[in-house]
Design a protein around this nucleic acid. Structure first.
Lengths: 227, 227
DNA sequence: ATAAATAGATAGTATTACTATCATAAAAAA
DNA sequence: TTTTTTATGATAGTAATACTATCTATTTAT
């Protein structure tokens, strides 16, 4: 059996749907590669155009500017993660197991080769870790938010939050706790490699310790207020 | 009695010490105002130069580029907060009270008029909330970190972390917990105004709820593992 | 076969992120 | 006091960025 889910992106994220054409898919695929290679600040549409043998104007037909392009990629990532969560939680009844599964999926770093549709999920993960918060840390968060550009991120947090409330309906801060865990899944990973003194994770390859930390953060919060 | 503490900044943060001259202080004061007004991306040295009637070249004599300038301002903020923490904890013995005090100081938003030396602390707070993580989310974190540009931030987290360990020596993740709380003090505040569905704080003026959330996060973690 | 949509090629512009040079004024050293 | 240093101002220049516009060739749908 083989199947592919298609992630439906908000139309305000692009000018022309990049999934519908060869050029569009090339822009997304190589754009992701180039951003993760250069970093968002150094990334330009010109450099991307050169790397895929098209013109700057060609890319501008798909994306308004590089910031929208970043939001597009990040929204794609969160949709993917949310889908995985929905899929994985499907047969689980116990909210505790659900929550552990969510953390596992958040912390899980895809293998090198893993490619979903036309994007490399490992690179997407890197991107979200290094550039994720730049999507909303702008002066135009308000309008971007009205345009529902952050919907996939907010949906994910809402879903997480509802499982928290399922576990413990009395807990007062399910949304903040969810967004805290989601943010920290990436921030602590970034710290681990770049500012290690901010973490307690010695330089090991896997993320077991990070997952343990997030679990302890989550469960001690929602268990203490339970009774 | 009147006194002023002087925050000693890392020399790699600037080319010429801005505190030592009228122009330097003007750059810092008005630069802070302009960044918070325009946002970091829209802020340029040219615009700052015009606003204080000097030239671009004049500003480049003090700061290598606008990113270093951002780091300078943010480092200044964290030093200030650390100083306040040291000062406030001075006579407190009980680690629980110490930790509550730290959270209070992290969450506390300065009043409009409050100005420390030549910088407006309210604007600094805004800056750290909106642009804080851009200081380290770059390709050159590594070298910047080697140059000790993030020392004040790391010192603050280390101090926080040591109080956590004082409260509960058995707790496994004091550093990660400290950096989580510090990050979230600002991120949740940002979410509250800009992406409110990610939080549980209805639009009220003060930050009591945020402080409560952070306290619950902190204490439930370190109390559950205590015995 | 014709019309419409897509992509390529080229050009142009205001702004950004700098670097360099020279003159002058003020402060510090001789 | 004179000299020297240092800080600032004024001006110029450059490569790159972030776009917009236009025109042509090529596919694709009708």
């Amino acid at each position: 059996m083989e199947f592919a889910i298609r992630i439906k992106m908000n139309e305000k994220l692009y000018l022309r749907d990049p999934e519908q054409s060869e050029l569009g898919r090339k822009i997304v695929k190589h754009g992701l590669e180039l951003i993760t290679k250069l970093g968002f600040e150094e990334f330009t549409f010109k450099k991307l155009a050169v790397s895929i043998n098209t013109t700057e104007a060609g890319i501008y037909r798909y994306f308004e500017n590089k910031h929208k392009f970043l939001i597009y990629l990040i929204a794609y990532y969160w949709s993917l993660i949310e889908f995985r969560i929905v899929f994985s939680l499907n047969n689980i009844k116990d909210p505790e197991r659900k929550l552990k599964k969510i953390i596992e999926l958040l912390v899980f770093e895809p293998a090198e080769a893993e490619t979903y549709e036309f994007v490399n999920t490992k690179l997407l993960y890197e991107l979200v870790m290094r550039e994720g918060s730049k999507a909303y840390l702008t002066r135009h968060v308000g309008t971007d938010n009205k345009d529902r550009l952050f919907k996939s991120y907010k949906d994910l947090c809402a879903r997480f939050s509802s499982v928290i409330s399922e576990f413990n309906p009395k807990y007062k801060f399910p949304h903040s706790l969810a967004s805290t865990i989601v943010e920290m899944a990436h921030a602590q990973k970034f710290f681990k490699t770049n500012l290690p003194s901010l973490t307690d994770f010695p330089n090991e390859k896997n993320h077991n310790k990070l997952a343990l930390f997030l679990e302890s953060l989550l469960f001690s919060s929602i268990k203490t207020t339970k009774s």
